[in-house]
Design a protein around this nucleic acid. Structure first.
Ligand SMILES: [Mn+2]
Ligand SMILES: [Mn+2]
Ligand SMILES: [Mn+2]
Ligand SMILES: [Mn+2]
Lengths: 223, 223
DNA sequence: CTTTATATTTTGAGTTGTCAAAACGAAACT
DNA sequence: AGTTTCGTTTTGACAACTCAAAATATAAAG
């Protein structure tokens, strides 16, 4: 039985929750419920069904984790989502700020045929417009472990590699400030009292953003 | 409330059932149920709900017909379906024989934004790869009323304009025989005893097909 | 005008996914 | 330990969609 859109959404949310988590701790129910956008009790019910199908491991009152079968399925959903986003930007000329919602629906219906065609047309990209890594067709994912504007070294040129937030207005803001993946900049200073980070772009412009925002912009030291 | 995929499928099936029907007779339940692929009782239940929502007019034991609101919605589903098919063929390079299944899913999730972008990218096509007319964004549809290989004049050059069957193997057959929309040919003879129609393509090749098949190939006299 | 055949509707039940609110377990405070 | 707090699970209910099979209406045939 092929997974429903609902099941795919739970697995994908779980995959992403596990990724943004230190160690191999289980994901607590509440977090999963929030991520999926559902009441806590609903998540419990669903997770029990997923455990029954062997897609997750579930420990009552502790949390839940993807099984290897579940992880593979989740990676394939993520592959579809990200290839669709890359396609919508590169081929359809849509903005990186507005493709997420479309991909959120399309990820459940694009056929393997269509996905592989998009992949080929795009030249087998390794990342999507937000820098998120695109899993391969067999469910393998290579996710370099970048630092953020909060953790990278100061006064050193870095390149934006990934943005871990899909909020359209945030993405539009980054675009306007030349902070899309690929752009170079350096972190001039951090002020924990002011809760801010001061940046200077390649063009010399200076920008100050909050630490919450800074933590969502991942970078790599320019080589 | 936006219509579910299920509702969209019922409306679309009804629209198509009405089109292939002489006069403004109501569509009988059984036919709708078959078209949607559901048990008769299921169709009855659904149609009552649709009537409640004002999308159809329902006369028990007689049949059902789209209201103007229902017809408009159906036309928009058809627009999405057909634009997607055209897109998959023209942009993605897929075969006209295999796009229907993909479109059947995509028609329910492509956003207005995406649809209009595809439409623009395709140069606002008036028909899809099968010659089916593409409704405009306001739900208007212009469907010229073509004859078929069964009804067109004999020994006169005609051009294929439309194929009213989505079966992949039938479409592959037509393609191999140069009977895709746009190709010219003439009907040499019809043999009602043999239940067959004899054609000659522009390249001079002679083909004999059954009347069932012939009725599904619509043509226009070449001007 | 009856009887029979056919199409349609009703009924009863099941599946999937959801919520609100009550019950409960584990952990944190006093 | 006793108690409050917080997250989690259970319970009861509901919405959307579906089927099989019984009941019924309509149409056709005798
Ligand atoms: Mn996304
Ligand atoms: Mn992305
Ligand atoms: Mn089609
Ligand atoms: Mn078509």
């Amino acid at each position: 039985m092929l997974p429903s859109s609902t099941v795919e959404n739970y697995l994908k949310a779980l995959y992403q929750a596990e990724s943004s988590r230190t160690g191999k701790t289980l994901v607590p129910m509440g977090q999963l419920a929030t991520a999926v956008g559902v009441a806590p009790g609903t998540a419990t019910t669903m997770v029990k069904a997923l455990a029954e199908s062997g897609l997750v491991d579930y420990e009552p009152y502790v949390g839940v984790r993807l099984s290897s079968a579940g992880a593979k399925l989740a990676a394939l959903v993520l592959r579809r989502h990200r290839l669709v986003e890359q396609f919508l930007v590169e081929v359809m000329g849509m903005s990186w700020a507005e493709v997420h919602e479309d991909a959120e629906q399309l990820e459940h219906v694009v056929s393997d045929r269509l996905v592989e065609r998009m992949d080929a047309m795009l030249g087998h990209p390794s990342v999507d417009p937000h820098g998120d890594p695109i899993p391969t067709a067999d469910g393998t994912i290579v996710a370099p472990d970048y630092g953020s504007l909060l953790t990278c070294p100061l006064t050193v040129t870095v390149t934006v590699t990934r943005v871990t937030d899909q909020d359209a207005s945030f993405l539009r803001f980054l675009e306007k400030q030349d902070l899309k993946p690929g752009h170079a900049l350096e972190v001039e200073a951090r002020d924990s009292a002011a809760d801010s980070v001061q940046l200077r772009t390649a063009s010399g412009r200076q920008i100050t953003i909050g630490t919450q925002a800074a933590s969502k912009v991942l970078v790599q030291e320019s080589s």
